[in-house]
């Protein structure tokens, strides 16, 4: 175990997130957690797929979804995933200022995505009379997409807290794993979204 030696000499190693055993444990177990999240979303997708045609005389997927809005949301989330890659690269170069900026951009994009989603849901509920209780399809749709949205919201809050910590504590072997793990989380959200726009929106349009 060389972790102690590296933190003692005062200089931050190249990959500060993996410098300590605690950091490595954090990253490993976050991967494990993501394995569980895959099952969580897998089950939600399964539910959605099972109930996708149970529209109970309410709106169908094809009537509801607007491709341009989904495309915009997709682009926003994809770019935010890239900006969090840049954040990690900045972290590896120990450029704390750049790291903070990229994280902030990520947060802003995340907020943008959330805004779009809330607008979309509000539109469905008011204009299309498509609420949680409308049909089995609507319940499954709101639950799956809403769960993803809640993940985005949590990610936004989390990364914001980390930005604050980077101001207060700087980049250390304690803060670095947190930033790295939050970036993993953010990528995973994007991965889930890839399946959502494919399975829910695009395949919904195909029918």
């Amino acid at each position: 175990m060389t972790s102690h030696a590296e933190t003692v000499n005062g200089e931050l190693p190249h990959e500060p997130e993996k410098a300590t055993l605690e950091g490595r444990n954090k990253i490993l177990s976050f991967w494990l957690f993501l394995g569980g999240e895959a099952v969580l979303f897998g089950t939600l997708f399964a539910t959605f797929l099972a109930l996708r045609n149970q529209t109970n005389d309410g709106p169908t997927a094809n009537e509801l979804f607007q491709l341009p809005m989904t495309a915009a949301a997709t682009l926003i989330l994809l770019v935010s995933s890239l900006t969090s890659v840049f954040a990690i690269q900045a972290m590896h170069k120990h450029k704390v200022a750049a790291l903070r900026v990229w994280l902030m951009v990520t947060v802003v994009l995340g907020l943008g995505f959330l805004g779009l989603e809330i607008y979309e849901f509000a539109e469905y509920v008011t204009a299309e009379k498509f609420g949680m209780t409308t049909s089995a399809f609507s319940s499954a749709f709101y639950t799956l997409v809403g769960f993803h949205g809640a993940h985005v919201a949590f990610g936004v809050l989390w990364i914001s807290v980390l930005i604050g910590q980077l101001y207060k504590k700087g980049l250390t072997v304690v803060t670095a794993p947190k930033v790295y793990v939050s970036a993993m989380y953010w990528h995973f959200i994007d991965v889930v979204w890839v399946f959502i726009f494919t399975v829910v929106y695009l395949l919904g349009k195909v029918g």
Partner: peptide
Amino acid sequence: WMHLKDKGHLMPILFMIFGFFVAGTAVIMA
């Protein structure tokens, strides 16, 4: 982006594969 192709990611890869496997069985069920 998530560095799974990098070295030292055997456990993450194993667990992700199995996670997707279970998710896949759920989808087949549905």
